[in-house]
Design a protein around this nucleic acid. Sequence first.
RNA 1: GGCGAGGUAGCUCAGUCGGUCAGAGCGAUGGAUUCAUAACCCAUAGGUCGAGAGUUCAAGUCUCUCUCUCGCCA
Length: 575
Amino acid sequence: MGSDQANQTPYYITTPIYYVNDRPHIGHCYSTLIADVAARAQRLVGRDVFFLTGTDEHAEKVSKTAAEHDKTPMEWATINADRFKAAFEFMNFSNDDFVRTTEERHKAKAVEYITQLKDEGIVTLGDYEGWYDPSQEEYLTEMVAKENDFKSPVTGKPLEKRVEQNWFFDLPRYEPWLKERIDSGELRILPEARKNEVLGRLKQGLRAVPVSRKIKEGDADWGIKMPGDDSHRIYVWIEALCNYLTTVDNAERGQYWEGEVVHLMAKDILWFHAIVWPAMLHALGKKPPETVYAHAYWIAEGKKMSKSLGNFIEIDLLQAYAEKYSLDAMRWFLTTQGPLGANDADFAHARFVEVYNADLANSVGNSMSRVGNMINKYFDGTIPATCNGEFGFPNGSSLQTALTALDNAGKTVDDPSRTYHFPEFTQKAVSDAVDALGKMDLESMLDSGRSIVRHVDDFISYCAPFTLAKQLDTLGDGKHALESILYSCCEALRIASLLLSPAMPEKMAELWGNWNCDHLNNPEDPNSGFKAPLSELAAWGGGYSIKPDQEILKGEALFMRADVKEQPPETGRNS
RNA sequence: GGCGAGGUAGCUCAGUCGGUCAGAGCGAUGGAUUCAUAACCCAUAGGUCGAGAGUUCAAGUCUCUCUCUCGCCA
């Protein structure tokens, strides 16, 4: 998609719904952050976006844990769902809804879907044979059973081969359809390595998927009954997948499913999303998703996170980082350094500080600060005139003047023939960012914003406005040249800030506040939405550009340089 | 065990159809500069492109063998 015409298709992005018995940690926050950045970027581009996250609550263990805490399953689920809501609010996620699978709106629709599949003979009764762990009352996969020498991984007691009747979804009949769909790219599986993985596994053939579990004696009344069969419940996995559709399967939100649908998740649950779910949708006569994106994992200081090591990066540590370096800096680190590709990424403190200093303090923050400072110093906070951003011969009189000033000061210019074309440069950055967004390459998208910052820094070193500023009395058109140069820096950084805003909404809104940029519906609220699509906001000399009388306040530094030697922030948790 | 991905500068990684492909960013070092947050700008990495063999006028880039790491297996 080029940059000339914005994509008007509605955009629907989802995260997995999270298991309520978990405590919110970096994994949950990362998946949801990626979705948030993509959603914010798509809104910035001007699309109608719906961003969904939520909690998966009907697992058997939830009712058990609830009992251990003297709570009803619902009370327990609510306590934990609220933890996720609080964590996500802290992360400043812009989700449009938060679905809980215990909500009636979800349950009713899920029953409807399963009923339809049953009526059409796609879900039928059959025998399920598997390795059962009596001590844990759960079935293990063939692989897990084998790895543990067919003994319980928890108690070490032998597993039992058990057969029970279940309802099955006839997945094999969709094998050709799935293969064609994935091969053709209509169903896009990202990153590429994951697509190969899925196709490889598809070659080994498909089996029917159990969609129910038999209700055992003593089970709490928890979960959704299998329609037409009170002795079974809908298997939580199947029911959970349905959330993506149940939430928007109505008159008000139906357009989102018809638009572009993107499911985002960690790699462990790719199969369900890339194979089982699209096949179910196809069986239901619904359009499958356009994109299924499976990212890898975070590890902590070079080690896998595990319960036994107790090194999970939980929400409290993220809060400590946000407290010390700002929330947006933490969002930036996770987004740009995270495992968006096929490989795991390391959350290491030293790395965090490095990236913070290099990307934010030294680059974005410093550049915005130096430009704002010069405008205050030389023009008392407002630029008297705009500039078309063109600095090249033979029309580069402003640049020529600056070089003359350098010459006067006895400074040598290594290459006096350089030219700068800011409108072209910034437009290229914007269109690159939009293209990267289309590929879910958020790192590249954000780097397009940083490329403008680098360009401005380079420009400043080259034409040295601070040297020019000292010769305003002696150079006839010195003032005009200085105005043009600083205006262009300022306007370019404004455009850069738009591209950086999906990852750092608060900090960029802070800049717009300081510089009196009129991008947001409510300047006080970073989440209030943009007044216009990116193509208009980012237009050089357009309706949202820096105006001659616009006040450019210095403001506080957005990102102060951090000391590399400082210890990681404390969580306040006793560990 | 089956299928798959990968081993390229200290770190994270780019390298399309084999021939400026030996690169980028970060870190480190040196220089220049002072508007700025000891920031910015410029220069510097001589790395056997995991090991060995083969194909070719020419191979990180193709073939084979070995080795190591990793992922997926409902």
